[in-house]
Design a binder for these strands. Structure first.
Length: 244
DNA sequence: TCCAATGTTTCGCC
DNA sequence: GGGCGAAACATTGG
């Protein structure tokens, strides 16, 4: 469920609750629910994979991790919500997610320029961050939430195929032009992901992720667990160039 | 039935 | 202390 574009969609679905007061809170989240009672939602934002329900001077941070789900104006059967809100105009339920309540201003808490889906996304800043890094493989680079906040494993695989870069290429060995292309395509694909997710045709557009045959050269797709997190990486050895 | 998967944090060990 | 690996959390589909 949860890469950056999916969280943007969730944020949009929650906009009707902006300006509304929390009438009641429930859930098994390990936070002080009493503190939330009666608070007015002043905004609902997202930063990468974080959903941020904002109040005056504090906010709730929800991360759906791998299996998190939600329901709006309905509930899942036989499962207790981690966090559930009742508003005058509806209900919101979150399941199997990480919940934190932070008593600080949300605007100063995040580097908004790093959010791949944000209108304040700053490609040049990302490039500078990358150039300040030591040797790093591009498969790790793309999953770095400080640089590409919101990028997940699917986006990683698809972007590397689109740009024809081998996942084990070293980031600092990419020619400058290629690096710029990678950064640009990461944002582009994230927006494609967003649109396809909305129309339920995301899988249909996968070129390399979960595929058996390279759509370009018809060679078998290689699948390996690469990088620091040993995440599943699908790539074409023939089409994706290794920079080292 | 078992395993792996769109993720992150924490703990233990060397 | 850094780096690495494993565990923890937990759901769903192949």
């Amino acid at each position: 469920m949860p890469e950056g574009p999916s969280i943007v969609i969730l944020k949009e679905l929650l906009q009707p609750f902006k300006g509304k007061k929390i009438l009641s809170v429930e859930g098994n989240a390990k936070i002080d629910l009493d503190k939330l009672q009666g608070l007015k939602v002043v905004d609902v934002k997202s930063w990468g994979k974080h959903l941020l329900i904002c109040f005056n001077g504090s906010y709730i941070r929800i991360h759906l991790l791998m299996f998190g789900t939600y329901r709006i104006n309905e509930e899942k059967e036989g499962v207790l919500p981690r966090l559930a809100f009742t508003f005058k105009n509806g209900t919101v339920n979150f399941y199997t997610c990480s919940v934190k309540y932070l008593e600080e201003e949300v605007d100063t808490a995040y580097d908004w320029d790093a959010d791949i889906m944000s209108e304040s996304w700053d490609a040049l800043k990302a490039e500078k961050k990358i150039k300040s890094l030591k040797t790093e493989k591009v498969c790790d680079l793309l999953l770095d939430q400080e640089i590409f906040s919101g990028v997940g494993n699917i986006i990683k695989n698809e972007v590397l195929f689109r740009t024809q870069i081998h996942p084990e290429s070293l980031a600092n060995k990419l020619p400058s032009k290629k690096l710029k292309e990678l950064i640009k395509e990461t944002r582009n694909y994230s927006f494609d992901f967003y649109h396809w997710k909305k129309t339920f045709e995301l899988k249909k557009h996968w070129l390399i992720y979960n595929k058996k045959i390279c759509p370009k050269c018809k060679q078998a797709v290689k699948k390996e667990h690469l990088g620091k997190g040993k995440r599943l990486t699908c790539f074409c050895e023939n089409c994706q160039k290794l920079y080292e």
